[in-house]
Amino acid sequence: MEPITLADVRTAATRIAPHVWRTPLVACEPLSAALRCDLRFKAESLQHGGAFKARGACNAVFALSDDEALRGVVTHSSGNHAAALARAATRRGIPVYVVMPHNASPIKLAAVRAYGVEPILCEPTSEARERAALEAQERYGARLVHPYDDPLVMAGQGTLALEVIDDWPEIDTVVVPVSGGGLLAGVLTAIKAIRPEVQVIAAEPAWADDTARSLASGKNEVPTRYDTLADGLRAAVGKLTLPVLTRWLDDLILVEEETIRAATRTISAEARLVAEYSGAVPLAAVMTTPERFAGRRVGLVVSGGNLDMGGCRLGESPRSA
């Protein structure tokens, strides 16, 4: 049995409509010409909080009953989901507790603190994050909103796929970054139900290849390192998400760190969008295997835009690297 259905994604779209942006699908003619395919960027970097995570967090928080909401919510996250859940809980006026690795991006830590929430810091491993979140859950009685292995979160993330298909009916390929797999599972559920002929391809850093290894072995593999530039893609693929990926995913492309750097710069220079390293991984996949995408109509999910600009604040200039 699938953890979510198209009906769940459509329900999520209605529920979160007052709380999220419908982000644009941005075309880039020079880059399309250079890579010999029609490229368009789903700019979730322009979403509330600068990432797609607003969708799943809002769906989970606003689906709670009044009694559940009184006890608040808790999660663990490298940053974007933490900030998204803090925002959603603030909008509903309920308590929120977030666990983050101590090496999380400073800009993501600051985003959580901006909502008046002090992160609970832990070691940068999946096991440490989950253990600290469980301790907080038991202490406060809050409802765990897992960053990806939660049906409500998965359904919320899948709403961006509804927008992509609606905005570009001719699309034939979607490339999605993968970490825990909540975004990818949501996108797969929506697209394969509406347009099964559309190819959905995962993009993953070679330094965080647990999803590729999990698909190959048929079981959940753990990450072997946590130092990829794409800090939002360091989590292990989920137990709920892996079966969805196994059933529906068309392909997975591993990308190297230098290609991620180049893709991040290219998105800024050519598409005029700010992408964090995790959000640039889909373009890195196209740059890695351009022949795979030649002549196709390709939607790239820019999952987030929370790039550290040297700690600058409003009215200041970014520091030089």
Rank of each mutant, 00 (worst) to 15 (best):
A185H: 07
R234G: 12
V178R: 05
P205C: 09
L240E: 14
V222I: 08
D231Q: 13
A235N: 10
E197T: 14
S268C: 12
L215Y: 08
A185C: 10
R247Y: 01
E197C: 00
R225E: 15
T246A: 15
S214K: 04
A212H: 15
R225I: 00
I267F: 12
L183I: 10
A216Q: 15
A235T: 15
P196E: 12
V274R: 00
G232E: 01
P223N: 08
L183V: 04
E197W: 00
R265H: 12
Y277S: 11
I267V: 14
K239L: 13
A235S: 15
T189F: 07
T264L: 04
V274T: 14
G181A: 09
A216V: 02
K239R: 13
A262C: 07
V176Q: 02
G232D: 03
L183E: 10
T246Q: 15
V178T: 08
L245T: 07
P223Q: 14
I267S: 10
A230R: 05
L183R: 04
T228A: 08
A208K: 09
A185P: 10
E270W: 13
D210P: 09
T189C: 12
A193P: 00
E256R: 14
L183G: 11
V237W: 06
T264C: 13
T264W: 06
G279S: 08
S214H: 13
I260H: 08
R265T: 02
G182M: 04
R265K: 13
I191R: 05
G218T: 06
Q199C: 05
T224Y: 03
R272V: 04
V187F: 11
A185R: 04
I253F: 02
L252N: 01
A284K: 08
L229R: 13
A262N: 14
V274N: 02
L242Q: 09
D250S: 15
L273E: 07
P196Q: 10
S278C: 09
A216D: 12
L229T: 03
G279T: 05
I267C: 09
E258L: 05
A284G: 06
V187A: 07
P177D: 01
T228R: 10
W207Y: 09
V244W: 07
P177N: 04
E276H: 02
I194E: 08
T264N: 03
R247K: 15
G279E: 01
A206S: 14
V187K: 04
K192M: 03
S278F: 00
V187Y: 04
T246S: 15
Y226H: 14
T189I: 07
G180A: 07
L242S: 07
A193I: 08
T241M: 11
L283I: 05
D250Q: 09
T246N: 06
L184P: 10
Q199M: 13
A208L: 07
E270F: 01
D251F: 11
Y226E: 01
A206D: 14
S214R: 13
A185Y: 03
A230N: 04
E221M: 15
S268W: 14
K239H: 14
G182S: 12
T228Y: 03
D227P: 06
A206W: 00
S268N: 00
V237G: 05
Y277P: 01
L245N: 03
